[in-house]
Every structure is written in C-alpha cells, then in structure tokens.
Amino acid sequence: MTKRILSIMALAVILFALFVVMSSTAPFGVDKTTVSHRYIYQGVKETGSANLVTAVVLNYRGFDTLGEVTVLFVAATGVGAALYSIRNPPRKKSKVEASLIVKTASKLLFPMMLLFGAYIFIHGHLTPGGGFQGGAVISTAFVFKYVSDTRYSIDHIAFTKMESAAGMVFAGLGITGLIIGGYFLMNILPNGTPGDLISAGILPIIYIAIGIKVGAELTGILDRMMGVES
C-alpha cells in the first residue's frame, strides 16, 4: 500500500513537471511553425496534393512512410510467427450463434464499410484520411464478418498475395523514380490541378497501395488472434 502511495506521489510530481516544461517551452495555440512554412506555402505547388498532411507523409517524407509500412509488416509477421503453432488445429466453433439482428446488419453493412474504406484511401490527397485510416476501416468490416459468422475465416493466400502486390507497388514506384528522376520516390507523374481526383502524381497510387496493404495486414492480425483457442 505504501508503495502505491509513494508511486502516486512521485507521479504527481512528474505530472506537474511535465506540464510546466510543456507549457513553458511550447506555448499553446501560438504559431511555432518554422520548417512547415515550406510545406504550407509551397506544398500544393510542389506536390499537387490539396491535403498538406498527405503531401508531407507521402512526398516530403515518403521514405519514412515506406519504413512505417515495413514496421507494420514486420509486426504482422511477428504476430503470425508468435501464434503460428496454435493456429494449426481447426478453430473451435463458438457455441453461441450471433443473433439475427447482428447477422442481418453485418450483411447489410459489410459492402458499405468496404466502400467507405476505399473512399477514404482513394480521396486521401483531397480530404482528411488516407491509406492507413482506410485500411483500418476495411479491417473493421471484416471484424463484422467474424462477429456474425462463427465459422468465417479469410482466404489467407489471397490476402497474402494482395498484401505483397501492394507492397511491391509502393517499392516499385520508389525504384522507378530512382531510375527516371535520380532519387527514391520521385513524383514521376504530372501534378495536375490540385483538388481534382486524378492529381498529385503518384500520391493516390501509393495511398491505394497502402490502403490495401494495411487492410490486409490488420485483418490478418485479427484472424491470427481470433484463431487462438483458450
């Protein structure tokens, strides 16, 4: 008990110190942008993307994003490796079937959720959202499938193929830029009019690839975890 009280007191001190340091070094609501001025004022002209966050994520820091996708891929692989041996026996069927309401609703909502996820990642350079968010929405649609049907299981081979193809599209675009323009992930396509659906060069293609990849990976992680018997 004394240990708990002591730790609470120490943490209260840390909380106060953190708050003081934060609000003295970075005053809230004040313009502190220095490097971002380039992104804000030149971003639309240089990348053709109306969404500046997408411009930063995919164009200025595209290599970073490739690393991020790799981290997610390694995590999915790690989950698969950690849970492999217990996935082999067939999944135990849940004794309780989902109710009629859940089944009907998931049947109705599943295509719409897929469509919404696709909308989010296709419009990633125009509206808030992008490949990661759209992929997460798509994997949520598959959660519905799992909840409503106790025997449901995804087609692993198709998902793996889709994921690999999407990853190869991203890396291949980067290497194409390297060959044509001289640096990795160069924007080889014309920028177009900012705000149009087909604009911003390779950014929409990359975001579609990321959306498919993230959706497949998150669904794969979910499937591995659902397959575990208690």
Partner: peptide
C-alpha cells in the same frame, strides 16, 4: 501539418507494438 504527419506514423507504430505485445 508536420506534427499531424508524425502522429500518423506514431499511431501505426503504436498499433504494431500493441498487436505484437498482445500476441
């Protein structure tokens, strides 16, 4: 826009860490 882009990265890394830790 820069912190938002960094947070986007951080969220994905967080999801990866959570999934791996849970497994």
């Amino acid at each position: 826009p820069l912190p938002q882009a960094l947070v986007l990265t951080n969220i994905v890394i967080g999801v990866s860490v959570t999934a791996l830790a849970l497994s």
